[in-house]
């Protein structure tokens, strides 16, 4: 197994996906008009405010994992300069995404809690913010939500491209979608997983905790979850099968995941909490016609935890090509 990258990078990949996914859900609520159906929308609030801080945390972890770049931080500027490197794309994406997400979150807070406007207006040292009150708040917010959503798709996909770009060095990471489709699976898988962890955080968790129940907000939620879980199962299954068929160290990685030294992580920290449990909960909710708060919080937490361990598992199970 590879040893160069460990937990800090795994958590960074996870936070990147979670933040991007949460912002995508908030933007979907914004543009579909769902955000405005009720007085208070915890999904849009969490989905807009959380991604900025999450990505800042992720970036700090990334910097913490650097060698010379941590001790001499100005070297980080060099990372903006080499455009053939997927890491350079990532540095640019983070640099653009974080401020856009922070502004979107700020505007969402202003929109959700009008009292914050009063507060801002009443502070003399914040008088320079007066220009804000002339802006059309919702239109401005929509611009940032839209730009943020585009960047979010970039961030979520890039986390997969970053590690699949090492190609033949660690064959498992660049496993194709199918044996005859030469597109790496990880960017697709990480994008879908990002959306599903984002949904788990902003709807299952946030809306349940804030309102006690979610179904009044998103009736189709169980169906969306079932579709996402189905898609992830399919993608992950295809990736493992393609890796097994590819042979070599890719197959060895897949074997370790399914029935080897990483099997416990895979079955009990990824498949059980992130696939089976939420599937049962949401299928049950469809049958029953409603969600219980416990199952909402449970499935949200399960999906988020499973997303974290998915990144970790993919990362540590990478086995360098045999020489």
């Amino acid at each position: 197994m590879q040893t160069a990258w460990g937990w800090p990078i795994a958590i960074y990949l996870f936070l990147g996906g979670l933040g991007a996914g949460a912002l995508l859900i908030a933007a979907a609520f914004e543009f579909s008009g769902k955000r405005y159906q009720y007085d208070f929308c915890p999904t849009a609030l969490v989905g807009a405010t959380v991604p900025g801080p999450l990505l800042i945390l992720g970036t700090l972890l990334l910097i913490f994992d650097l060698g010379a770049g941590r001790r001499e931080p100005w070297r980080i500027l060099y990372m903006y300069t080499h455009f053939s490197s997927v890491m350079t794309w990532g540095v640019w994406l983070l640099t653009l995404f974080i401020p856009v997400a922070l502004i979107y979150g700020f505007l969402e807070i202003l929109d959700a809690f009008p009292a914050t406007r009063q507060w801002l207006k009443s502070r003399r040292w914040l008088r320079w913010t007066a220009f804000l009150w002339n802006l059309p708040l919702r239109q401005t917010k929509r611009i940032f939500a839209g730009v943020g959503a585009v960047l979010a798709i970039g961030v979520a996909t890039y986390t997969g491209i970053l590690i699949s770009a090492v190609g033949p060095a660690i064959p498992f990471w660049s496993t194709w979608v199918l044996p005859f489709i030469p597109i790496p699976m990880l960017p697709v898988l990480f994008l879908v997983s990002a959306i599903s962890t984002g949904l788990g955080l902003t709807v299952d968790l946030a809306a349940t905790l804030a309102l006690g129940s979610v179904e009044q907000r998103l009736k189709s939620l169980p169906w969306i979850h079932l579709a996402l879980i189905g898609a992830e199962t399919l993608l992950l299954g295809m990736m493992l099968i393609t890796a097994l068929m590819a042979g070599g160290s890719a197959a060895k990685s897949a074997q370790e995941i399914i029935a080897g030294s990483y099997a416990i992580v895979f079955w009990f920290l990824i498949v059980l909490p992130g696939f089976i449990f939420p599937f049962v909960v949401h299928a049950y909710a469809i049958g029953l016609g409603r969600h219980s708060p416990v199952s909402g919080v449970g499935s949200g937490m399960g999906i988020v935890i499973s997303g974290l361990f998915l990144r970790y598992l993919i990362l540590i199970s990478g086995i360098p090509a045999a020489l």
Partner: peptide
């Protein structure tokens, strides 16, 4: 070099 170790991952 910033010590990101990306090259170590990419060298087959």
């Amino acid at each position: 070099c910033v010590g990101c170790k990306y090259c170590m991952q990419a060298c087959p």
